[in-house]
């Protein structure tokens, strides 16, 4: 087995909650960028939410914009920087699919040459676990204390499917971080998304289902990962590549 060392770009312990999937996803992003040879040519748009914590430990060039502005701000960064740097929009589901839905969809509609990484934990994590559009029917949150009632608040939104089926983008995929195998598949999705940007193919969206033990009020080891495997993936959010341009 080859040696494995945590990437040196992550200079401090990022204060995510114990068992949060963000830590794994940040490491995958850094590894992918390093392997593609862009370790010093990378700009990340950092969204508002739990994603904001990344700036406390990751030594990358970053831009923090208004809540939900990931698609628009990353567009501006990419059009300015052109081929000199990779641009990643790192967002949560509350940022990309609720507050920034217009920006996310318009960036995909224009097929902007950016890579969007959206971390879906089915709630607004940083503000204390409020219901978001990705919350599952029946899920208890601080703003749906009896469980989400889909008769009055609708069904969970599936933005990756929406983009894959509606717009002429390069790549849409959904991964998760529940097991070493899934983590490696997700790393492949992220790398493909970044490679598309290098090749100038256009917009890539990678959604990653992430455990949120704090706001799901669950044990990280057992309940959180099992919830993703048994509830999220089979019934609402199927994983895999949803769209590859040219196939």
């Amino acid at each position: 087995m080859a040696k494995m060392k945590y990437p040196e770009q992550i200079v401090a312990n990022i204060p995510f909650c114990p068992g949060c999937g963000h830590g794994i996803i940040v490491r995958l992003m850094v590894e992918c960028v390093n392997e593609l040879g862009y370790s010093d040519k990378i700009v990340m748009h950092q969204a508002v939410g739990c994603c904001s914590l990344v700036g406390l430990g990751l030594d990358w060039e970053m831009l923090v914009g208004a809540h939900g502005g990931g698609g628009a701000n990353a567009t501006g960064l990419k059009r300015m920087l052109k081929d000199t740097a990779l641009v990643i929009a790192y967002q949560g589901d509350g940022d990309a699919y609720n507050i920034g839905l217009a920006e996310t969809l318009n960036a995909a509609y224009r097929n902007e040459n950016i890579t969007v990484i959206a971390v879906n934990n089915t709630n607004f994590g940083m503000t204390g676990g409020q219901m978001s559009w990705t919350t599952l029917p029946g899920q208890r949150t601080t703003t749906s204390v009896d469980g989400r009632d889909s008769k009055t608040s609708g069904m969970p939104i599936k933005v990756p499917e929406l983009i894959a089926n509606s717009f002429d983008t390069a790549y849409v995929a959904r991964g998760t971080v529940t097991s070493p195998a899934e983590i490696r598949k997700t790393k492949g999705f992220i790398k493909q998304g970044l490679q598309n940007q290098i090749d100038g193919k256009g917009h890539s969206l990678i959604e990653i289902l992430s455990p949120c033990p704090t706001n799901w009020h669950s044990n990280p080891i057992t309940d959180s990962l099992d919830r993703i495997e048994k509830e999220l993936i089979p019934f609402y959010y199927p994983i895999g590549e949803l769209k590859v341009k040219g196939e």
Partner: peptide
């Protein structure tokens, strides 16, 4: 057995595999 599964799944970079 130094398979690296702990490194792969750890969210916080606790592990470093040396061989």
């Amino acid at each position: 057995i130094a398979c690296g599964m702990c490194y792969t799944t750890c969210p916080d970079g606790v592990f470093e595999i040396t061989q």
